[in-house]
Design a protein around this nucleic acid. Sequence first.
RNA 1: GGGGUUGUAGGGUAGCCUGGUCCAUCCUACAGCGUUCGGGACGCUGUGACCUGAGUUCGAAUCUCAGCAACCCCA
Length: 485
Amino acid sequence: MTDSKIIKSKAKDNKQAKLPGKDSFSEWYHELLMTAEIVDNRYPVKGMCVWFPFGFALKKNVYAVIRELLDPDHQETQFPLLIPENEFMKEAQHIKGFEEEVYWVTSGGTTPLEVKLALRPTSETAIYPMFKLWIRSHADLPLRIYQIVNTFRYETKHTRPLIRLREITSFKEAHTVHATWEDAAEQVEVAISRYSEFYRRLALPFLVSRRPSWDKFPGADYTTAIDVIMPDGKTLQVGTAHHLGSTFAKTYEITYEAENGEQKLVSQTCYGISERCIAALISVHGDEKGLVLPWGVAPIQVVIVPILLGDKEKVLAVSRNLQGELAAAGVAVKLDTSDERPGAKFYKWEMKGVPIRLEVGPRDIEKGVVTLVRRDGAKKAVPLVGLVEAINKEAEELQAALYTKATNLHDAKVKETASIEEAKVQTQVGVALVPWCGAVECGHQLENQVEANMLGEPQYQSFPEAACAVCGKLSAGRTYMARQY
RNA sequence: GGGGUUGUAGGGUAGCCUGGUCCAUCCUACAGCGUUCGGGACGCUGUGACCUGAGUUCGAAUCUCAGCAACCCCA
């Protein structure tokens, strides 16, 4: 072999191994975010990323699903980014949880501010003083609002694009106010069911658990969380719902006049989802060829690649007709007429996670068909007549297949373990379900000895009695344990 | 919270220890032209970089300090 041949074959190898394998997850993840144009992490401030237009389009679609799920009984709103120090510092428990992570604005131009302003790390302390003004009577309740905003947290740990950021760009936070503690508890359940539906739409399986008391939201009575298991077996918290009780109501004096004329404290909840949902989406579904996007959120659902051989004008004309027909049917369609070879286009759009590709060439046109290729590899010839219906059917099947695949992966990563030793082994590769009597002391022991975090008690499930992995006491209690992002 | 590794063009690398001969190199980058086009085309001609700042020095990608940024590991 001559030198030039060696160089050529090496170049070819490089092309085919464009992304690192998914088993080196971290590397794969970072590379994919750049190559598929989701976010650019080269912005020169730690923990802050730039959304590429393509990534932003994906984000818009994903958040459209959230909006669709909340809008029937929540009102979208927007509160200011800056929170005055005096309001921020009112709620002691809350401050304790966040004060090390707050960015402060201390001057306006060259003038020092008399009252420092916090960049919201979350918005309770911005919103609740206003709730005090808005809520007067039982007729004002329940009140349910949400906003999608950026929040800032001075993370001291290592930051990761979309996962651990100093500027969370897309924090969807809902805040609700109720007459009673029970009403608020019910709202927490509603929140979890909406989030469950949201993740089902993204074809993402998840765990729901009640966080242990030492890991709940600062100021909350309890926290229920949703976690997705990432390819490396670590879990990513992708949604939380907090029952705030009357903690903030007391601090901010949020009261209402009951029907009997009595002034009562409200009960509150808040629940949130951030762009971590995009991180989960990308990580769970993606493969060595790049992104794999669910039909419902793909910025481009169908790409048409014309094979420009023979009668080029005819191929283009058919392609354009097809594009028009699909667009008219509400499909996000892209006709790729760029000056690249078809193979290069195939790889490009697979990297971008486009669910369905249509190839239109002279051979296809002759037979009155197009070649339809799904992102999961299935390839078939489909007649031009009735194509829209065929595509919709394929999209449904694709979504089902995606969910099945993800569910199988998920299930394989969760395992029941009886002892600390077993849990320690299991948390190296996934999530352990461990018998736990519920005692705080046993919980701390578990975390220390298993060397993993406790996600908390699984919700909506019951278990037979088993011996607590620490104290041996019989109980029906369980906890998920995992290494967490 | 602790430790480690690293920063060279759009991406990937070499050079750094031992300061000068460095116009470094490769590509999946970019631009132009031509031939091509059913799974990452090829040829030719070009383009483009030493993280920032201070210091040492006749001279710094290279040595020193600080900062910023990134990645990995452990708690």
